[in-house]
Design a protein around this nucleic acid. Structure first.
Lengths: 134, 134
DNA sequence: ACCAAAATTGATACAAATTCTCATTTGATA
DNA sequence: TATCAAATGAGAATTTGTATCAATTTTGGT
């Protein structure tokens, strides 16, 4: 049921727990590698994927961007900064099944869930001058 | 304001309009190439990106999957099939600004919009036997 | 503690989906 | 129609992973 407990997975989870905000797998890898240069990139990606499959951590899939991970697993929404790509929580009450059922009726599909992604500009990037004129 | 009208962009938009359901850029490229082998892939990707930036077509960003495009631009949600990756519309009334404003208050970010992505199994894939046993 | 089987790892190749570079061509406009 | 920024095409490069596979490590009995 639960995957094996390896020294690598211990280290990876430890790093994730110490990282405040929704790091990507690559960011976790950088952090892990700083202390344990022997751990491979694929292992970090695999362990994070495995743990999120088991529900022990959360994987936040982002439109057109790398997945982010979080050691907290309660359900909520996320925002992504259009400028710097940072991801943060949006603690609005999620409307669970009811929306899925409405979508089921509207589409004829079997709906297993949904995600809401907000896009915007984070407080830090708001402080920095003019927009990067896309 | 509007980008230049080139023979390539004409062809690409024409192909997109003739394709029923949310093709990916790659699929549009295949369709275009069948008739006009000279047009490059990068051009198809660029033109689709440009037109969606201008609001003339819609880009549907999908968690962990290729972007899809649609020549219709009215606002609505999307479902993605967990089995075959197909994307379809979910014609629920979007709750526009009101949700963004709530998220703005909850997060302190400046929110420019949000997307809702449903995940499920399309009618076709429901017909096909046992689940792929995740 | 010891062993075998199964899971995990690390290195690296591969893959998908774009984006970038840059020389060349083309469209809009003075 | 001359000009010149914008657009194109070919292919390299990037980003974000997943697949392969031999070597290693865990786990679960004995």
């Amino acid at each position: 049921m639960a995957s094996r407990q390896t020294v690598q997975s211990e280290i990876i989870v430890g790093a994730l727990e110490r990282m405040a905000n929704h790091p990507t797998a690559e960011e976790v890898y950088e952090a892990v590698r700083a202390e344990h240069p022997g751990i491979g990139r694929a292992t970090v990606f695999r362990v994070l994927g495995r743990l999120s499959d088991e529900g022990r951590i959360a994987r936040v899939r982002i439109n057109n961007g790398a997945d982010h991970f979080d050691h907290r697993t309660f359900e909520h929404h996320h925002v992504r900064c259009e400028r710097c790509g940072r991801v943060d929580d949006v603690l609005l009450e999620p409307r669970g099944r009811e929306v899925d059922e409405a979508a089921e009726r509207a589409s004829g599909w079997r709906i297993s869930g949904h995600t809401v992604q907000f896009d915007g500009v984070c407080p830090e990037c708001q402080k920095v001058q003019a927009p990067p004129a896309e």
